[in-house]
């Protein structure tokens, strides 16, 4: 019972984005996907979530190829937060969160999902009048609403988040990570593209490091996120590397 990626390869417009990526996402795991810009993190997330099909290799969910699931049945088992920002019409926050429900959503559930980020007071605001961080919190509430039936039924699902910490203030960054932890404790499998190595180190069970489309390291957060990673993958100069190393040290303690 898990999501299994085997030897994934993916190219776009003749350019190789991902090469030979394999890994497993088991229920009850919080996975952080890290790496420099352009390493293929978002692409990998979309391949794992079934939004794109790999050119080579396979992704299977519970032993069955992901491509054999219907869009509707996948939507009941996994939700995805993308980086898309395309709303131009004056929807209210209630409307936007309700879009996450596959059936008609009731106000109680919408408020419940907004409450995770103390965002319930936004419910009657116009989405377009919100700040970037507030919009991100609303989008996360929408994704939660999609999985609320599985949450209520105690039937763990998969959650994929593409840079969910974008635009969130420190307080809400920690609130989100704590929420993801509590979902993980209920058996959810969570994959999260993340730039903040300190938070990844503090909260993630598993870390995958991508560089130039290849998986260069995978394992427990403490084993993977270290000074060597900062040097070889992120190519951090000595001075900031030292700062980051001491931050990671604090996070570990």
């Amino acid at each position: 019972m898990s999501l299994l990626a085997e030897r994934l390869g993916w190219a776009q417009k003749g350019k190789h984005i991902l090469n030979d990526v394999s890994g497993e996402l088991a229920p009850g795991t919080l996975l952080a996907i890290v790496g420099p810009n352009g390493a293929g993190k978002s692409s990998l997330l979309h391949l794992l979530a079934g939004g794109e099909r790999p050119d080579t290799g396979t992704v299977s969910l519970d032993g069955q190829l992901l491509s054999t699931y219907s869009a509707a049945s996948l939507a009941r088992r996994r939700a995805v937060l993308t980086q898309e920002q395309s709303l131009l019409f004056p929807f209210t926050v209630r409307d936007v969160v309700a879009m996450g429900s596959l059936l008609a959503a009731n106000d109680e559930d919408i408020e419940h999902c907004l409450q995770y980020f103390s965002a319930a007071e936004l419910i009657n605001r116009q989405y377009l009048s919100l700040s970037g961080g507030e919009r991100q919190r609303v989008q996360i509430a929408r994704v939660l609403l999609q999985l609320l039936p599985s949450l209520k039924a105690g039937d763990p699902a998969y959650l994929f988040l593409d840079e969910p910490l974008n635009a969130l203030d420190l307080n809400h960054q920690f609130a989100l990570m704590a929420l993801l932890e509590s979902l993980r404790d209920r058996g959810f499998a969570i994959a999260c593209v993340i730039h903040d190595l300190v938070l990844a180190h503090r909260f993630a069970d598993q870390v995958w490091v991508l560089s130039n489309g290849r998986l260069v390291a995978q394992g427990g957060a403490a084993a993977v996120i270290n000074e060597r990673l900062l040097d070889e993958v992120f190519m951090l100069p000595a001075q900031p590397r030292k700062v980051m190393a001491s931050l990671l040290d604090c996070a570990a303690r």
């Binding site: 509707a72 939507a75 995805v80 596959l102």
Partner: peptide, 8 residues
């Protein structure tokens, strides 16, 4: 498009 697709 992508978010709509993820919603089935």
């Amino acid at each position: 498009d992508r978010s709509a697709e993820y919603l089935g």
